[in-house]
């Protein structure tokens, strides 16, 4: 792509408020993310994590401020952002194979008309292989386990070769093997310059994976490295008193 876009930050939110029907879900979000950086959105259920992710895709109305994604408006940047939805938001009964789902990641390049090329098929195969699912290309999506489904959806996003990858609660209902496979791939991606944004309520994952943590609950409570943001004090404020500090200095959350 053009050099200007490459030089731009992956994500820049300045005083952004987003919401539905004129009612804000999140107010005054300020973020900055460079290529190859990993950002975790942390907060309780209903904090607005998914809404923020969808706003990066341009799927939620912006009420105030200017969001910039890869140097453009969110909806214009969609060609270069990848998205991994929550598995329960889709129809597992739909007759598609894992390979076909991953091929969906290539649709934007292929267009909706031309036949697939060997480059597309290779990209699909490689994406499945990276997630340890090369044998499952012809398996019906609906018979895969929750963790396998999540891996297929990540493979679909990778097959599109995005510069910014968004993941909405990627570890919900995911087994340990799948979680490790996903984490490994995410680390690899960031070393080659793909910026990552993932929403999670798992503080351990956020600590392990993220360079930057953004603590949300209706608004942005803290943003910065995990060591500074995931402290007992900020968590207690953001979660409203449901964070408990353990003796070893770690913090756990007691969700109401």
């Amino acid at each position: 792509m053009d050099d200007v876009a490459v030089a731009d930050a992956a994500l820049r939110y300045a005083g952004v408020s987003v919401g539905y029907h004129g009612t804000p879900v999140l107010t005054d979000v300020n973020l900055e993310l460079a290529a190859g950086e990993r950002l975790a959105l942390v907060g309780p259920n209903g904090a607005g994590k998914s809404t923020l992710v969808k706003s990066i895709l341009g799927l939620v109305p912006v009420l105030a401020g200017t969001p910039t994604v890869l140097g453009r408006t969110p909806s214009r940047a969609r060609t270069q952002t990848g998205y991994v939805p929550q598995t329960d938001s889709l129809d597992a009964d739909f007759p598609v194979t894992a390979g076909q789902v991953v091929m969906m990641g290539r649709y934007r390049r292929i267009g909706w008309w031309r036949p697939t090329r060997s480059a597309d098929r290779r990209a699909v195969h490689e994406a499945l292989e990276r997630l340890g699912l090369a044998d499952h290309a012809r398996t019906h999506f609906g018979v895969l386990s929750g963790g396998q489904r999540q891996r297929v959806l990540l493979a679909r996003a990778i097959a599109a070769e995005p510069r910014l990858l968004l993941l909405d609660e990627p570890f919900n209902g995911v087994d340990a093997v799948s979680q490790e496979a996903i984490l490994a791939v995410l680390r690899e991606l960031s070393t080659v310059g793909t910026a990552l944004v993932l929403s999670t309520h798992d503080l351990t994952v956020a600590r392990e994976l993220a360079d930057t943590v953004c603590l949300l609950n209706g608004r942005q409570w803290a943003v910065g490295p995990p060591a500074e943001t995931l402290t007992a004090e900020t968590l207690r404020r953001a979660y409203g008193g449901h964070a408990i500090e353990l003796r070893d200095g770690r913090t756990v959350l007691v969700e109401p």
């Binding site: 029907h21 009612t23 879900v25």
Partner: peptide, 17 residues
């Protein structure tokens, strides 16, 4: 509906499509 719209985000459909 417009009159008493709450803060809650709209709910999805019961079935995805």
């Amino acid at each position: 509906l417009r009159h008493r719209r709450t803060r809650t985000a709209p709910q999805g459909r019961t079935s995805p499509h």
